[in-house]
Design a protein around this nucleic acid. Structure first.
Lengths: 239, 239
DNA sequence: CGGATAGTTGAGTTATCTCAAATGCAGTGG
DNA sequence: CCACTGCATTTGAGATAACTCAACTATCCG
């Protein structure tokens, strides 16, 4: 539940573990060539700082060790859309193994510890191992499914549904790492950030969240979120 | 501009050409093993029929030879979201090389000629060639960018913007194959289908399209669309 | 303690939806 | 060749989810 670098818990389902990138996360050594070790030291960055800018031709793939980050785009007139939140163990995108993701910003939400892998090296390593390659394909399929789900949320679901789904999705992903206890999880998101991710405004997010709390579906406070009525929330989410 | 099977024109940018899948499209032989040829005959299907259902554990990757298809999901209560239109030369998803895409339906919009490649064989072929592998990575990156763009459209753009962008996007992709002449292209989409793709209702699509025509941005008729004022449309689209 | 950022709340607006009826158009069968 | 049926589109009127603006309050951090 903490953001300390050492407390990351890899699980069988997470990208980092599955691509063998856990070196420095108190796990098996990385599958990357020894020569790359110096370049893949754990980086750290404070909340709200940019990890990778939209016009940066980054030669790195980013893997989150601890903390929360987000990937988003900003339009010229100020509209923003967040494409994904990145939780511990997650890679910014499998696509970034092949090309940088132009026009997208990766930002730290909390303090973040992350590793940077040189794209070329990581790609060569992954592509030269049949096992890793199969894993990559699976991660990629999951990522595609997630992208599709986002489109369905934004295109066809109501505000209530979107927010309920976001909460459940984050809860599920955090639970993979044992980061949910007694239905309670860290929840560092500002309402503005929830709004950016769900295609809503912060004002409306505030209303929906309070409505949820009035109905005893969730409780938020002190940067923590507790799911009080999981079934109800789920019913809302999968309508 | 026609839907006949023989008239497909591969271009350097399309998935089929780049992954060497053009056999049977009057192009170079496929890179697939000879043994697979019998299984990759061109299939044909009439408009509105399902190419691959949402619960089907398809062992195939689909590549469109001619005609238009679409990938969409339906929710229990009837809401639908289209995730992509598939034009000649396009693959259903690079992710489908690894896993079937559950919950998504691929449907023919017009009469469609397409090829099915056995996932396993195609994957092995692609993964065992460094060239094809690099190409695959590029296609995947492009697909990821397109998925992101869809999320931005649905989350943050107005109806006018979404529709203008859809038209320009389709025009651009058709132009790759020389399927746009004098700013005019085949346009077999029903307003309902445009609505499903843009997260709007058919009624609202009708109003926007008529507004566009009243402003002399486009002309639609006889299943053709002409872009009359490209600059204006573009300005609308990239706001 | 003070300033900045985040969240709440109310009131009024609007883009888009819903419903419903009217029209157009294409294919079918007699 | 026409009447019929079923879809697609248009149009109007009214409803509503979500937005905007603005003021107020709470919370955090130095």
């Amino acid at each position: 539940m903490s953001n300390e670098p050492g407390t990351f818990t890899a699980c069988g389902a997470c990208a980092a573990k599955r691509l063998n990138l856990c070196a420095g996360m108190r796990h098996k050594p990385s599958a990357l060539p020894a020569t790359s070790s110096a370049r893949t030291l754990v980086q750290s960055i404070t909340a709200r700082r940019v990890i990778c800018g939209p016009r940066e031709w980054s030669e790195f793939v980013h893997v989150i060790c601890s903390g929360w980050a987000m990937v988003s785009t900003a339009m010229a007139d100020g509209r923003r859309q967040t494409l994904a939140f990145l939780l511990p163990g997650e890679i910014d995108s499998t696509a970034s193994l092949f090309q940088p993701r132009f026009g997208r910003t990766i930002e730290a939400i909390t303090e973040v510890f992350y590793r940077r892998f040189r794209r070329e090296e990581m790609r060569d390593t992954v592509l030269s191992s049949p096992d890793l390659l199969r894993t990559l394909g699976e991660l990629w399929s999951a990522e595609r499914a997630q992208a599709d789900d986002l489109a369905i949320d934004l295109g066809r679901r109501t505000a209530d549904e979107r927010i309920a789904r976001l909460i459940l999705d984050l809860g599920k992903r955090l639970a993979l790492h044992g980061m949910v206890q007694e239905q309670t999880m860290d929840f560092p998101l500002r309402q503005r950030q929830i709004a950016d991710a769900t295609g809503l405004t912060a004002v409306h997010v505030s209303r929906v969240l309070n409505e949820f709390q009035r109905n005893a579906l969730i409780r938020i406070g002190g940067r923590k979120l507790t799911i009080l009525d999981y079934d109800q929330l789920r019913r809302l989410a999968e309508a």
